[in-house]
Design a protein around this nucleic acid. Structure first.
Lengths: 247, 247
DNA sequence: CGTGTAGTTGATGCTCCTCAATTTTTGTGG
DNA sequence: CCACAAAAATTGAGGAGCATCAACTACACG
C-alpha cells in the first residue's frame, strides 16, 4: 500500500496523456523542494521515498513497488525525494491536468478520494507498528512483506541496503544487521549464493510469530545467559525468559 | 489535523441532513467492529480514538478537537473506538448518503479527496515523529500542540490522563510522568492550582528546542553528569546520483 | 474512613544506540 | 584478470533511554 495510490487504472480513467519513463538504479525521479508537476505510478522495479533531515539524518518513508503510486502533493512542491533502487519503469501524468479532469468528472474524483482514503488508513495503521513493535518484530514483518512484494520461486532479492532498511524503521544499521543474522543463525532464514541481500525464508511460521511478538526470542546474543532469577507472575505480556543457546 | 477531516464545511456542502449529538465524558461514540453508518465532526470538547490490542494493550491513534472529523472508513465496519474525554458536541451525517451524494457531485467528491489527501500526508508526517524522536522530544512537542489546541489565557487544561498520553506515544506511564516532572523541575512548565493536568508553559523557546532535539537535556536525573566528549564528523552517508532541482 | 484511581518516584535490567574494529562485497583502473 | 580502494555489512563492548516492578502520595467518592 502506498501514499495516495494513483495507479494505472486511475490514470487511464482520467483519459490523460500518459508519459512512460525509465530511470537507472540510483537516479532521482524528483527531489524535495521541486515543483510537483506530475503524479507517478510504478510499472517495473523498486524505488524509495525519503527526506533528508537536519543532522545527516535520512528518513525513508516508503519503498515503492509495481502498482504503487507516488508524487501526489497537496501543496505545490514535493516534500520528499524519490530515487530508483533498481532500473525502473514508471508512468506519469500531469498533476494540474489530473486535478482539472477531476473537477468535472465525479467518477474520477471518487476514484481519487477512494485512493487517498485508503492511503490515510494505511498510514494510520503504520503508526501503530512504529509505536510499539521492537526492532526485531519490525524487521521480521518487513521480510514477510518483501516476500509478498518480490519473491520469485521462494527467493527474495532485496533491492535495498541494510542502511536503507535502518532508515525506514528509524533504527541503526547495526540493529538491522544483528536481527537479520540472528534469524539466520536460528535457521529462520537463509542467505543464497553467499549474497547478503538474497534471502530465503525457511520457517515462515516462526517468522510470523516473531513479527507479532518477539518476546520469546533471543535476539542479540548467542552467548549471553539471561538471569532467570525471577518473579512470580508478570501481569501483562508473558515473557519466557531464559531460552538462549546457540553455538 | 485529523484522519480524514470531514468537517462542517464538507457536511454542509453535501447538503444532507445533519444530526447534532451530545455525549458526556467517558461515553462511547462508536465501538470497534460496529457498522460504519455515520461520519462525524467535532463541534465542542475533546475525544480520543483508540484500539484495544491483544494483551491488555491499548493504542491511541488520535486526540480529537473541535474541527476534527472522524469515523470515515473504507470498509463497512469501524476499526477503532471513539470515546469522549469531556462532555462534547458533534455533528454526524449518514455515510452511505454522503457517498451517494459524492457519486454525482464532482465538487463534493473533490472536497472529500482533498480532505483525505491531507489526512494521508499528515499521517505520513506522523510516522516520522514516531520513527526517531525520543520520548521526551515527543512529549515536549505534545505539550506545544496542546497549547495550540486548547490553551486559554496561557493555561492548558489537559483533558487526557498520563496513561492516555502514554498509549498515544507507545511509552509507559512512568516515562510520561518523569518527562513532565522533569520539565517542571527545570522551570520549563508549571502546574497551576496544584492540578497535574493544568499546565502553563513558562519557557516556550526551551520547550521547542527540546521538541526538536533533546540531546542536550538532562532527562531523568537532575544530578547525572554527561560526558560531552564529542566527535568530529559522523561518517558518510551519501548517495549522490542524479540531478538536483531547486525552486 | 476505607477503597479506588491517578500520579509520582526509585531501583534494576533489557533493548537498542554509539563507537570502534574487522570482514566482505563492490567498483575501478592497470 | 588481479590489485586496490571504497562501500556495505558484520561483530563486539559499553552506555543511554526506556520498561518493568514496586512502593508510595494525593485526591475523589462512596
Amino acid at each position: 500500500m502506498s501514499l495516495i495510490n494513483i495507479d494505472r487504472a486511475i490514470l487511464e480513467a482520467a483519459n490523460l496523456p500518459i508519459i512512460e519513463l525509465s530511470y537507472d538504479r540510483g537516479e532521482t525521479v524528483y527531489e524535495q523542494g521541486a515543483l510537483a508537476q506530475f503524479v507517478y505510478a510504478v510499472d517495473q522495479g523498486a524505488l524509495y521515498r525519503f527526506r533528508l533531515m537536519p543532522g545527516e539524518r535520512r528518513s525513508i518513508f516508503q519503498f515503492l513497488f509495481p502498482g504503487d503510486g507516488f508524487g501526489y502533493e497537496t501543496g505545490r512542491h514535493h516534500r520528499d525525494t524519490v530515487r530508483a533502487l533498481t532500473n525502473i519503469k514508471a508512468l506519469a501524468a500531469s498533476r494540474p491536468a489530473l486535478l482539472l479532469a477531476a473537477k468535472s468528472d465525479a467518477r474520477l474524483s471518487n476514484l481519487l478520494f477512494s485512493a487517498a482514503a485508503s492511503a490515510a488508513l494505511a498510514a494510520d495503521e503504520k503508526t501503530d507498528i512504529l509505536r510499539v513493535k521492537t526492532a526485531t518484530e519490525q524487521i521480521a514483518q518487513f521480510l514477510l512483506e518483501m516476500e509478498v512484494c518480490l519473491s520469485k520461486r521462494g527467493i527474495i532479492d532485496l533491492p535495498m541496503s541494510r542502511s536503507q532498511i535502518a532508515d525506514y524503521f528509524g533504527v541503526r544499521i547495526e540493529t538491522v544487521s544483528r536481527a537479520i543474522n540472528a534469524f539466520q543463525r536460528e535457521k529462520i532464514i537463509q542467505f543464497r549464493d553467499r549474497e547478503q541481500r538474497r534471502i530465503v525464508i525457511r520457517d515462515k511460521r516462526r517468522l510470523q510469530k516473531l513479527a507479532s511478538d518477539a518476546s520469546d526470542f533471543d535476539y542479540w546474543s548467542v552467548l549471553k545467559i539471561r538471569t532467570t532469577a525471577n518473579t512470580e507472575t508478570p501481569p501483562n505480556r508473558n515473557e519466557t525468559h531464559g531460552t538462549s543457546i546457540r553455538p
